[in-house]
Write a protein that binds this DNA or RNA. Structure first.
Length: 866
RNA sequence: GCGAAAGUGGCGGAAUUGGCAGACGCGCCAGACUUAGGAUCUGGUACCGAAAGGUGUGGGGGUUCGAGUCCCCCCUUUCGCACCA
């Protein structure tokens, strides 16, 4: 062991050893409790970033902790390897996506391995492996067989200039990211998963996640699913044999309706305009409204519309209501048609005022006030008693709602209804780098799934990605042309690939059985490891991956593959690590080294804007490269820093000095351990008699037990790892203080060595989750052979953690006046007397009478005087 | 606009159920060792004040012997949703 700590050497040594000894490989063991610790699948962008470090450091700390607590810990790793960016990069670099992705995996794996993470690498998977995506196809077919998938025409972003479909990201601002042409919506046949069939389950089962998932994520999902309960009401169209069905949550306001408003693309628009002279005009205007709706931002779009000339009949009072079309009614929500009630809805109010549609009061507030006719205003929630509502006048809103829905139902023109914001999930992509959809289209037999024994449908190689129109796969005849599995006649393969979110739906099930080529996974193995005990990832997946994967779990349950409803018991969304930026008015974003000490630009001398803390990015020149940092102070210091900077779920700020501080701490641990290691190796195991100990010895033991307790509790409850690290620093400081006392006494005796040994045997295992390499090295320096990961987590003893003597705060009328020392076991009476006797207390309470004395044992005495 | 979360020293952040605010770290100041220190060790560091003492957890009110913590109002910031009928 060297006197000085060289992280590079230590880290290399232990990474090698862990790999050679397969330290972190696990298998099912029914005698031990399992713990599944999972970080979100890493996207193969090509380069590790600091967010990875933060994500993995949290998971790795927990995996280490649970392992030392005796759990059988599954901590696997894999690659989210399909997707558009690889395709784009490949085109740019003149290579192919597979090559690009394999290179990215090789490089990133090297980077991640330098972080020294305790993964079971034998379970590594990549979603672009045919052995993996075969099962995406298998799931697709099972779902198709059960009617969980369907194909329909749906709009996609389309660049008319390049004839290519674009993702939403590539079509932001409504312009093509490459050529700048205005993106249009083009109808294309697409595959959809019926996630809406699971809307209620996805919503209700959120209750099961309460407590284990962040409230924020749960509420985002609730919001996204957007369940809304109300009623459908049919309005007969005058003179035409059609009814317009509207969705409303407030049927009790129907007597206030002044119009029926349709979305411009509603199917009945052309029907109600039949034979009307201005038909063309209105239809064209509808197209304009529709375009506006798609392009403009909601808060900038003024509501407008036009009267169709047709009327509908309010089934409750037989009033004639004009039928309008307007830009604020959405075709995709509810029925695409609304009843306008200006006194019940702000939007309707705004619209009605603009077009002078009539207003009728249908609610009274608590004082039963009426709204003056000359002051039209939308009533708010406090207006809750119906008025002018026929036989339902004078009721509370909720009663009217219920009774009127029943009435509508009884008379056949309405029924209660539930709508959701959640839409079916379009899983088709007209792109190359993804899982091929395993379907064959036969002119005679329609869509037929590829037979199971022909899976996987392998993505062809050497495909020209720069094609005009459609998917690159359309231009690969040897892929497209096939035979129909049903009739044997000529047929064509589907050329869509699947959304990469399909890959990430179930990858963590595959980790349980990654090499199975007969089925996606063995059900027994999954039953052992799942659900995931702790999942860690970014908040950006709150309503993407995290809702899709919950859905997929339920699908797998309904396919009989798993028995539980929810796949993830606990979720932690880690914060981002941001960094200060430097901005020069002339040269824009600067690297820190381009800024002088006087905060001016090194190039032009202009004053630089500093202090803005932003998300790390290349363009803002504030990205920190993890490997560079590891090269400076090592992976342990890097991991320690990102965990120490703040609670895991909070955003943090990168600080070079903070990073140095983490490194300095490890050096400090090394130095004191180095000083004691040979003594510890020779420790004689003398029995410790607590009552014979000196105060400095008792103190170290006491603090040690207190700190074990607090670190353990933190791991178990809140996972505030930053405070765990603080505690470890305190323990280290205590060891230094102890060492000083030992020096002052002329060197260690047997008991000192024994106590120091205890302290180090607590400190080092507790440090391992945060800085495993140095911990392993120091552990072996104490004479241990095996990996620290097989060591038991230190135990604490409440008795030994208890203070002998406590400092008690003494307050007079709630103000701190003095502190007294007392035995920890002192009774309330003793404390009271000691406090009253204190000269400062007497001075403060002089001439006043004591009303009451409050004693909080071991903490404080408060004397109330008058 | 609706919804949620958060506001604590120069900075990152502690303060389990109401009980000594500022743990731990960064930074800064002083000292020791040293040819030297961007190493290490020791001490100091919320603010005002020479001190006694006073003031302090975004602002204002309240409950309580006692409030960073609980309740009401307001302000600010961040995030999410955003014509969802």
């Amino acid at each position: 062991m060297k006197e000085k700590y060289f992280p590079q050497e230590v880290e290399k040594k232990w990474q090698q050893r862990w790999a050679d000894e397969k330290t972190f490989e696990v298998k099912e063991d029914h005698d031990r409790q399992k713990f599944y610790c999972l970080e979100m699948l890493a996207y193969t962008s090509g380069r590790a970033h600091i967010g990875h470090v933060s994500n993995f450091a949290i998971g790795d700390a927990l995996a280490w902790y649970k392992r030392m607590r005796g759990f059988n810990v599954l901590h696997p790793f894999g690659w989210d390897a399909f997707g558009q960016p690889a395709e784009t990069a490949a085109i740019k670099q003149g290579t192919d996506p597979e090559k690009f992705t394999r290179d990215a995996i090789a490089y990133m794996k090297w980077q991640f391995q330098r972080m020294g993470l305790s993964y079971d690498w034998s379970r590594e998977i990549a979603s672009c492996d045919p052995e993996y995506y075969k099962w995406n196809q298998w799931f697709f077919i099972r779902m198709w067989e059960r009617g969980m998938l369907y194909r329909k025409l749906a709009p996609v972003n389309w660049c008319p200039n390049e004839n290519i479909s674009l993702s939403n990201e590539q079509a932001s601002d409504g312009k093509c990211w490459r050529c700048g042409a205005n993106v249009i919506q083009k109808e294309l046949p697409q595959w959809f998963a019926r996630i809406t069939d699971y809307a209620d389950q996805l919503l209700n089962d959120l209750d099961q996640l309460e407590g284990g998932w962040p409230e924020r994520v749960i509420s985002m999902q609730r919001n996204w699913i957007g369940r809304s309960s109300g009623a459908h009401v049919d309005f007969k169209v005058e003179g035409v044999d059609e009814s317009i069905t509207v969705f409303t949550t407030r049927i009790d306001t129907i007597f206030g309706a002044n119009a029926i408003i349709l979305a411009p693309e509603h199917r009945l628009v052309s029907r109600v305009l039949e034979g009307k002279p201005h038909r063309e005009e209105v239809m064209n205007f509808g197209e304009t409204l529709r375009q506006e709706q798609r392009s403009a931002r909601v808060d900038e779009l003024e509501k407008h519309g036009t009267f169709t000339g047709a009327y509908a009949i309010n089934p409750f009072n037989q009033e004639r209501l004009p039928i309008w079309i307007a830009n604020f009614v959405l075709i995709e929500y509810g029925t695409g048609a609304i009843m306008s009630v200006p006194s019940g809805d702000e939007r309707d109010f705004e619209f009605s005022r603009k077009y002078n549609l009539p207003f009728r009061q249908i609610k009274l507030n608590e004082e039963r006030r009426e709204i003056p006719a000359d002051r039209m205003e939308a009533a708010d929630e406090s207006w809750s008693t119906t008025v002018n509502t026929g036989q339902w006048s004078g009721l509370k809103s909720e009663d009217a709602n219920r009774l009127m829905t029943e009435y509508a139902e009884a008379n056949g023109f309405g029924r209660s209804a539930i709508t959701y914001k959640l839409r079916d999930w379009g899983i088709s992509r007209q792109r190359y780098w993804g899982t091929p959809v395993p379907m064959i289209h036969c002119e005679k037999c329609g869509y037929q799934p590829v037979p199971d024994d022909e899976l996987p449908v392998v993505l062809p190689t050497g495909v020209n990605l720069k094609v005009e129109g459609g998917s690159p796969l359309d231009h690969v005849p040897e892929f497209v042309n096939t035979t129909c599995p049903k009739c044997g006649g000529p047929a064509k393969r589907d050329t869509d690939t699947m959304d990469t979110f399909v890959d990430s739906n179930w990858y963590y099930f595959r980790y349980c059985d990654p090499h199975n080529d007969g089925q996606p996974f063995d059900q027994q193995k999954v039953a052992y490891w799942l659900p995931v005990d702790q999942y860690i990832g970014g908040i950006e997946h709150a309503v993407l991956h995290l809702i899709y994967t919950r859905y997929w779990n339920k699908v797998m349950r309904d396919l009989g593959l798993v028995k539980f409803d929810e796949p993830v018991s606990r979720l932690l969304t880690q914060g981002m690590i941001n960094k200060e930026t430097y901005f020069c008015p002339e040269h824009e974003w600067l690297f820190p080294e381009q800024v002088t000490e006087k905060k001016t630009c090194l190039i032009c001398g202009k004053e630089v804007v500093t202090g803005r803390v932003e998300k790390m990015s290349k363009s803002k020149k504030n990205a920190v490269d993890p490997i560079e940092m590891i090269n400076i102070h090592g992976a342990d210091a890097l991991r320690l820093f990102v965990l120490f900077a703040g609670p895991p779920e909070k955003d943090k700020e990168w600080s070079d000095t903070g990073f140095e501080g983490a490194s300095r701490y490890l050096q400090r641990v090394w130095r004191i351990a180095y000083k004691w290691q040979s003594r510890i190796r020779k420790a004689t195991n003398v029995p410790i008699v607590q009552s014979d100990l000196h105060e400095y010895q008792r103190r170290l033991r006491r603090r040690m037990h207190q700190i074990i307790r607090s670190v353990t509790e933190n791991f178990e409850e809140r996972l505030h790892l930053n405070t765990c690290i603080s505690s470890l620093m305190e323990l280290t400081n205590e060891i230094y203080t102890f060492d000083q006392s030992v020096e002052n006494n002329g060197g260690p005796n047997e008991v000192d060595v024994q106590i120091a040994s205890e302290a180090f045997h607590s400190l080092i295992p507790m440090l391992a989750p945060f800085a495993p390499h140095i911990s392993e090295e120091l552990w072996s320096s104490f004479g241990h052979r095996g990996s620290l990961s097989r060591t038991k987590w230190p135990e604490f003893d409440d008795e030994l953690a208890r203070e002998d003597e406590v400092e008690v705060a003494v307050q007079v009328n709630g103000k701190l006046r003095s502190r007294i020392f007392a035995r920890a076991a002192a009774s309330d009476d003793e404390l009271r007397e000691a406090a009253m006797a204190d000269p400062k207390v007497q001075a403060a309470s002089e001439g006043r009478s004591v009303v009451k004395v409050i004693v909080v044992p071991g903490k404080l005495v408060n004397i109330v005087v008058k």
